[in-house]
Each structure stands twice: as structure tokens, then as C-alpha cells.
Amino acid sequence: MSRPSDRVLGFTLLAAALFAATFVDATLQRAAHEPALQRTERLVEDLRLSDLVLFTEARYTRHLTQADLHSAFQDHPVALEHFPSGSLLPPPALLLDRHEPLDREAAPSD
């Protein structure tokens, strides 16, 4: 291991082995998490849950799919959306589907 190329290639190989190890670890962890995931699926069915607890700060980020079009502007009609998580999440797919085309088709008022 005296040549510089041996050291560089050795280090690169080690990094590549670690890279490959992440895939092995992912497979092992997936198998280990499976029973817990199944129990979570059952809990969602039993409690009729519809959303993930990702952001509890505002109701439209806690129950993202249950939000209406106006909930992000709840304080007054032109209020800016002010919860930080609101800027991370896109609006629910359902709202975009129904309102976006209307916005595009509507003629601007004079």
C-alpha cells in the first residue's frame, strides 16, 4: 500500500462498499419494520384516519386532505398564509383539480 494510487483506489473501494451496504441495510430494515407497518395500517383502518401527523401547528397541515380551499387564508380574505409548514406542502390534490382550471378559465374582472 505504498503507491498513492493504491491508497486512493482503496479508499474509493471502501466508500463503494459502504454505499452497497446501505442497500443491504435498507433490505434488512424493511423486513424488521414490516410487522409494525402492518399494525399501523390496521390502526388507520380501525380509527378511520385520513392523515399523517406531520405538522400539528395548523388544522390544514394536520389534516392536509381535509382542508378546504380557504383554510390557509382563515384570518381574513387576503391574509397571507403564515404557518411555516404551509410553505413546505402543496395544497391537497383534490383542491388543485377542481379550482385550478376555473382560475385559468375565468376572465379577469374589469
Binding site: T22, A26, H33, V53, T56, E57, P84, L88
Partner: peptide, 19 residues
């Protein structure tokens, strides 16, 4: 912390690796 925003309660969960 970026994801938590202003929320006081946030879940602590280990995600299942899916690459």
C-alpha cells in the same frame, strides 16, 4: 426543525428505508 415549523407536538418516527 425545518419540518417541525411552529408545531409543539411532532412525531418521532423511524422511516422504513425505501430507496
Amino acid at each position: 426543525p425545518v419540518l417541525q415549523g411552529w408545531a409543539v407536538l411532532y412525531p418521532s418516527f423511524a422511516l422504513t428505508p425505501k430507496i
